[in-house]
Design a protein around this nucleic acid. Structure first.
Length: 555
RNA sequence: CGGGGCGUAGUUCAGCUUGGUAGAACGCCUGGUUUGGGACCAGGAGGUCGCAGGUUCGAAUCCUGUCGCCCCGACCA
């Protein structure tokens, strides 16, 4: 055992509280004909897999997640409570996410800008609902100077600010305060602006990427001349997020509206995309809000419409954050480490040279360099790992870090004019041995076909990851009509439950307390599978319900 | 904010009960032999034991205070 060992067993196994993930049952137990992406041998009393320093999902899902983040060098805790350091490997993925999203924002007519980190308290106080929603968890700046007192640097008590500044938890208020100067006429609309920024929410309990005191995100803030146009924008951006999630992250999502209880403070309607993680819990992966005229009114922004009348513009805001990193990890990765979809992989392929003697090395290395060159010219990110380590050590390392394809080139390959390609994953087949699976990952191909084959692999692996994640979600999704079924489902492995709902906020809370579930979203019509269509009666109250909602435990 | 745990080498930890020269493994560096799934041998570098007081001839160890982090809960845009 090396690396992360000791404190593991038992440390997170405290009780069967809301973290149902800690039971040692294999995942996907009741999935039929489904790839067993999460299925593991049972390893009670031990996290297993210790040689690799990664807990298995079956033994300890939370630890598995933390191990991946740590061992794949994506992020780590900083010396500041609740704040993380995003390491180069993790940041590279985030940068790719940013690029993909930013391109889509631009393609839908948005431009980037930047607004201040500090928000005067009075701005936040103007929008009551909004302020109430953020009241408890903000960082507040009260002083503006340091002073050396008795040789120690301290806050200068004489530097107290007249008005405290809030470190932005989100920027609606300060942005709309600025929009006041930008919007006078219907000709100034729509105003379509996005900002990439950090925000701060003084979270009491944190988890790397999923919830930290400071995180990175983008927030779009738009202003429109009509309600309809703003509502369309809200849906358009949700669609952008869904497209990104599914086609770039290879992560299937359910698009829907939030229930009143889960709505963004100050919003008229909140939409979200919801993804299922490998423990069956839902993770909100992006939100888009129709804000009505709330923020325009509190910031006193008005415009003259075509009829020459003064009117408040209609607003939207939408955002995704570094939380997506957590979603990415928990959607695809396995017990060997990170699995990164090709479209987000900082390195597409790593070349591992194989040789014994110096004369072999002298032949193999140039061949590796030539291939690297060829692949790079074709736009692939290729790393040649020529470190003085055993090949096996390199295999494990790059698998752990999620590189999609490994290329091995050795003396035998040179003889046969071939190369060895090893994909990071294959779709698991039931009953397959570890050995068989490993063989299926590996292929020997003519050297001349390398580029085409690798390109093809990028494509097919991207698609397979989506298919695999979708199949997993389906296997953990049920249409449920009675409270008994509901209870049994969530006492078991759980997942997404499509249920009829007509309860009020209090009843929603009751359900949350009893089963630790919540309404993840009220799906858009396009999202509802055939088996879940139609009207029915509420699972709790028996009242008539027009459509089903998705309930799940959540992050 | 409540409950629990932990601060000793880069990392994970032992040592503390019963005070007496600072330990292990992994990692790192050097040299050699190795290299198609985590190599081996030899040598080496690396710690004001979280911080501040106190007790003592002597403190990583005992006492008091303090700071920080992690986990669980409340909370969660």
């Amino acid at each position: 055992m090396k690396g992360i060992g000791g404190r593991r067993s038992g440390s997170i196994s405290a009780g069967g509280g809301r973290e149902s993930v800690h039971n040692a049952k294999p995942f996907g137990a009741n999935g039929t004909g489904v790839p067993e992406m999460a299925k593991q041998q049972q390893q009670p009393q031990q996290s297993g897999n210790d040689a690799k320093g990664i807990a298995t999902r079956a033994a300890d899902y939370s630890q598995w997640y933390l191990d991946i983040v740590k061992r794949a060098e994506l992020a780590e805790h900083s010396s500041v409570r609740g704040c993380m350091v995003i390491r180069p490997q993790g940041y590279a993925i985030w940068e790719k996410m940013q690029r993909e999203l930013d391109d889509r924002f631009k393609a839908t007519g948005h431009v980037n800008a930047y607004f201040p980190l500090f928000i005067p308290l009075s701005f936040l106080a103007r929008e009551e609902q909004h302020a109430a929603g953020f009241a408890k968890e903000c960082a507040v700046v009260t002083h503006h100077r340091l002073k050396t007192i008795d040789g120690k640097v301290q806050v200068d008590p004489d530097s107290k600010l007249e008005e405290p500044l809030i470190v932005r938890p989100t920027s609606e208020t300060i942005i709309w305060n600025q929009y006041k100067g930008w919007i006078q006429s219907y000709r100034d609309l729509p105003l379509l602006i996005n900002q990439w920024a950090n925000v701060c929410r003084w979270e009491m309990r944190t988890r790397l990427f999923l919830r930290t005191a400071e995180f990175l995100w983008q927030e779009g803030h738009t202003a429109h001349a009509s309600e309809q146009e703003a509502r369309e924008e809200t849906h358009r951006m949700l669609g952008v997020y869904a497209d990104f999630a599914e086609n770039v992250m290879a992560m299937p999502v359910v698009q829907g509206a939030k229930s009143p209880g889960e709505r963004f403070p100050g919003a008229v309607e909140s939409l979200s995309i919801e993804a299922m993680m490998q423990d069956g819990k839902a993770l909100q992966a992006g939100t888009s809000h129709y804000l009505g005229q709330n923020f325009a009114k509190s910031a006193e922004v008005q415009f003259l419409n075509k009829e020459g009348k003064l009117e408040y513009p209609y607003a939207t805001s939408w955002g995704v954050s570094t939380r997506l990193m957590g979603a990415l990890i928990m959607t695809h990765s396995d017990d060997t480490g990170l699995i990164c979809p090709p479209k987000l992989a900082p390195i597409h392929a790593v070349i591992v040279p194989i040789f014994r003697k110096d004369d072999e090395k002298a032949k193999v290395l140039p061949a590796c360099e030539a291939l690297q060159q060829e692949l790079r010219q074709a736009g692939l990110a290729v790393k040649l790992d020529d470190r003085d380590l055993h090949p096996g050590a390199k295999y494990y390392e790059w698998e752990m870090k999620g590189v999609p394809v490994r290329i091995e080139i050795g003396p035998k390959d040179l003889e046969k004019d071939s190369v060895c390609l090893v994909r990071r994953f294959v779709i698991e087949q039931p009953g397959e041995s570890e050995d068989d699976r490993r063989k299926r990952k590996k292929s020997f191909i003519p050297r001349g076909e390398a580029l085409a084959q690798i390109r093809g692999l990028m494509d097919s692996m991207q698609k397979e990851l989506f298919q695999r994640a979708l199949a997993f979600r389906e296997s953990r999704t049920r249409v449920i009509d009675t409270l008994d079924q509901f209870e049994a489902f969530f006492k078991g492995d759980g997942g997404f439950a499509w249920v009829h709902w007509a309860g009020n906020a209090e009843q929603e809370e009751e359900l949350a307390k009893r089963f630790e579930t919540s309404i993840r979203c009220i799906p858009l019509a396009s999202q509802i599978p055939d088996a879940a269509r139609g009207a029915g009666t509420c699972i709790l109250t028996g009242r008539p319900s027009a459509q089903r909602v998705v309930m799940a435990k959540s992050y």
